[in-house]
Amino acid sequence: MSTLELHVDVGVPIDTAWENLHQVENYPHFVDGVRGARTEAGGRAHLEVDAGGRARDVEAEVSDRGERVMEWLSVGAPELAGSFSLQPLDKNHTRIQARLEYDPGSVRDTFGGPKGFAQTNAIERLVRSDLEHFKEYVERG
C-alpha cells in the first residue's frame, strides 16, 4: 500500500467544513471524476466515477472517529482507504488533513493510467486539486 498525506487551509469555521465533508451528494461539485454520489444505509456512500475514460461505481464505508475525523474504506476494487482530519486554526479558518492509502496495482487495474512514479504523481495532483476545489466550494458558500 502507498500512502499520501496532504492538507489545505480553508477560510470557514470547522463546523462548516465538517458539514460539507459529510454531504456526499455534493462531492460531484469538488471531486474530479465523480459524476454522482449518494449516502446509503449503514454508513455507506455510493459514487459514480469516471476516471481514465472508464465509468465505475465505487462503494465506501464511511465513519466518524474521534474528534473531527472522518474515515472511509472502499468496498471491493480499487482498494482505497482514507481519512479527513479537521483542525481549527482560528474561529474562521480550518485545516483539512487528507490521508489516502491505496494499492497502486488495484488503482491501475480499475481505472487505467500510468504506472509507478508517474501514477503516484498523478494521484497526488488529483488529490491536491480536489482539496483546492473543496476550498473554493466551501468558501463560496
Score class of each variant (00 low, 15 high):
Gly53Phe: 02
Asp32Arg: 13
Tyr102Glu: 10
Thr94Asn: 01
Leu126Met: 07
Asn20Ser: 15
Arg35Lys: 13
Ala98Leu: 06
Glu132Arg: 10
Val75Met: 08
Ala60Met: 07
Ser106Leu: 04
Arg65Ala: 03
Arg54Ala: 11
Asn92Cys: 04
Gly36Pro: 04
Ala17Thr: 08
Ala77Glu: 14
Gly112Tyr: 03
Val10His: 01
Phe117Lys: 14
Phe111Cys: 09
Val138Ala: 06
Lys135Gly: 03
Met70Pro: 01
Gly76Asp: 15
Gln97Leu: 10
Ile123Ser: 06
Ala122Met: 09
Thr39Asn: 12
Ile14Phe: 00
Pro88Arg: 14
Gly141Asp: 05
Arg44Glu: 06
Leu47Gln: 07
Asp15His: 09
Thr120Ser: 14
Leu126Glu: 12
Glu71Leu: 09
Leu73Pro: 02
Lys115Ile: 10
Ala118Arg: 12
Gly52Asn: 11
Tyr102Lys: 10
Pro13Met: 12
His93Leu: 00
Gln87Gly: 12
Arg108Lys: 15
Arg44Ile: 05
Gln87Ser: 15
Ala51Gly: 03
Val49Phe: 08
Val24Thr: 14
Phe117Glu: 12
Arg54Trp: 08
Pro114Ile: 00
Glu132Ala: 12
Thr3Asp: 08
Ser83Leu: 12
Glu71Arg: 13
Gly11Pro: 06
Lys135Ile: 00
Gln97Thr: 05
Glu124Lys: 15
Thr3Leu: 13
Gly53Tyr: 04
Gln119Ser: 09
Gly66Phe: 01
His7Phe: 03
Phe134His: 02
Glu19Pro: 02
Thr16Arg: 15
Val34Tyr: 04
Glu124Met: 06
Asn92Val: 03
Ser129Arg: 15
Asn20Thr: 09
Ala81Phe: 02
Trp18Pro: 05
Ser85Thr: 12
Phe117Arg: 13
Thr110Lys: 12
His22Arg: 11
Ser74Asp: 06
Arg68Asp: 03
Thr3Glu: 14
Thr16Leu: 15
Glu5Asn: 10
Thr16Phe: 11
Glu67Tyr: 04
Asp130Pro: 03
Pro78Glu: 07
Leu86His: 02
His93Gln: 09
Arg38His: 09
Tyr137Thr: 04
Arg35Asp: 07
Asp57Arg: 08
Val127Arg: 07
Ile123Trp: 01
Glu25Ile: 06
Thr120Cys: 05
Gly66Glu: 04
Met70Gly: 00
Ala17Phe: 03
His29Thr: 02
Val34Glu: 04
Glu101Trp: 00
Gly53Ser: 04
Ser83Asn: 13
Ala55Val: 05
Gly52Phe: 05
Lys135Val: 00
Leu86Ser: 01
Ala45Gln: 11
Gln87Phe: 01
His133Met: 09
Gly52Pro: 11
Gly43Trp: 09
His93Asn: 06
Pro114Arg: 05
Tyr102Ala: 08
Pro78Ala: 10
Asp90Ala: 01
Glu5Lys: 12
